[in-house]
Simulated assay, not measured.
Amino acid sequence: MRMGLAIDASCDLPRQFLQQHDIAVMPIAVRIDDSVFKDNRDPAEIQRFFDLKLGSRSHSAETEPCSVEDVQKLFLDKLVLEKDCVFCLTITPSRSPIYDNVVKASFAVLKNYRRVREPLGITGPFLMRVLDTRSLFAGSAPSIVEAVRLMQANETPAAIRERLAYIAENSYGYMLPRDLYYLRARAKKKGDRSVGLFSAVLGSTLDIKPLIRAYRGDTTPVGKVRGWEHGCETLFGYAADRVRAGLLVPAMCTAYGGDLSELPTLPGFDKLAQACEECGVALMQAPMSITGMVNVGQGAVTIGFAAEEHQVDF
C-alpha cells in the first residue's frame, strides 16, 4: 500500500524533511496590506516576508486556511493518484478551521476518488484519515515525525492511527514571544482576550515574558520569565531536561520566527543540542511559518516534543 502524509502549513518542520518524505503541504493565504503570501513552507516566500519588513504591521493580517474546495482539488488531482492511504495532520481545531475543512473535504474525496483512479487502471480502495495533532506550530511536529517512522516500518493504517492519536494526546508545544504589544494587538484583531492590555503593558515595562503551552487542544500561559534571553535559557533548559527524562518520539522540534541561522546562537540552545546528541534524539530546526509569525510576532521561539504527562515548573 502506497502511504502518504499531508499537513497544513503552520505545522513547523524543516523543508528538507518535508521533501525527503514527500509530505504534501496544504497552504494558507496571508494578506498584509497590499501584499499576499502563499504560506506553504517555501523558504523563498518566508524570505520575501522578511525582506518586505512587514512584521510590525502583520497583526492586522488576514489569513485564509486551505479551503474545503482546495483540499478536494489537492487530493483528487494528485494524492489519490499517487497514494492509496493519506494521513492528514493539522494543528488543533481550537486555533484554526483547517481541521474542519479537511474533514468536510474528505467526504467528497472518498465519494469521488474511484472515477479519478479507475480510468488510469488504479484499483483498490483509497483511504483518507484526518487527525488533530492537539497542538500547534512546533508542537504539531512530533506526530508528523512519528507518522513517517510508522510508515517506513510498514505498519497498518489502523495501527498508525491509534499510535498517532496517542502521540497527539501527549504532545507539548511551547512558545516564548518576543513582543507582548504585538501579541496583544493580534489577539484583539482575532477577538482573543487571552492577552490583556494591562498584562501586555506590565510585561513589557518589566520585561516579563510568558511561556505559553499548547497541550491537548488548550493554549495557555504556564510560566513567566524576566527577559527574553533568560526566557530562551529557561525554555531550552526545560527541553534538555525532557530529552534526558525520555521522549515518546526521539525528536525535539524547534522553530524560530526569524533568520534560522540565529536559532543555534540563542542562549541555552547549545545545552539542548548537547542533550539531544547524548540521548540520540534528533534536534530539528525549522523556520516558523508565515502564519505563525503573523499570529504571535517575529522573533518568537517554539519547541515541540512528545512525552508522558508530567508537571511543568518554570
Rank of each mutant, 00 (worst) to 15 (best):
A153D: 14
T156F: 01
Y172C: 07
R193Y: 12
V145H: 06
R117K: 13
S96V: 04
N101S: 15
I160V: 10
P142D: 06
P125E: 15
L164M: 05
V109N: 15
V103F: 13
A138S: 13
M175R: 13
G124C: 05
A147L: 08
R115L: 07
Y174C: 10
I167R: 03
D132Q: 07
A147R: 06
R163V: 04
S106G: 02
F126S: 12
L180R: 09
K104N: 13
Y181S: 10
Y113N: 08
S143N: 08
Y166V: 00
P93N: 08
K189D: 13
L136C: 06
R186I: 09
G139S: 12
I144F: 09
A105G: 11
I160S: 00
P142T: 06
F137G: 08
N170E: 03
P142Q: 03
P142L: 05
G191Y: 14
V148N: 05
G139Y: 13
S194F: 02
A185M: 14
Y113T: 07
V148T: 06
V109Q: 14
I160G: 00
T123Q: 11
T92Y: 09
S194Q: 06
A168V: 01
G173R: 09
A159G: 05
L120H: 07
I160E: 01
A165F: 02
R117P: 10
G191C: 12
V195G: 00
S171A: 10
K190M: 14
D100F: 00
V145E: 07
S171L: 05
E155T: 03
M175S: 14
Y182P: 10
S94K: 07
G121M: 13
A141S: 12
V130M: 14
R134Y: 08
A138D: 05
Y182K: 10
L131Y: 15
F107Y: 14
I160P: 01
L176S: 09
L127S: 11
I144R: 04
A153P: 13
I167K: 01
A108L: 06
M175Y: 13
F126R: 12
A108Y: 11
R114L: 09
K189Y: 14
A141C: 06
Y113C: 07
L127I: 05
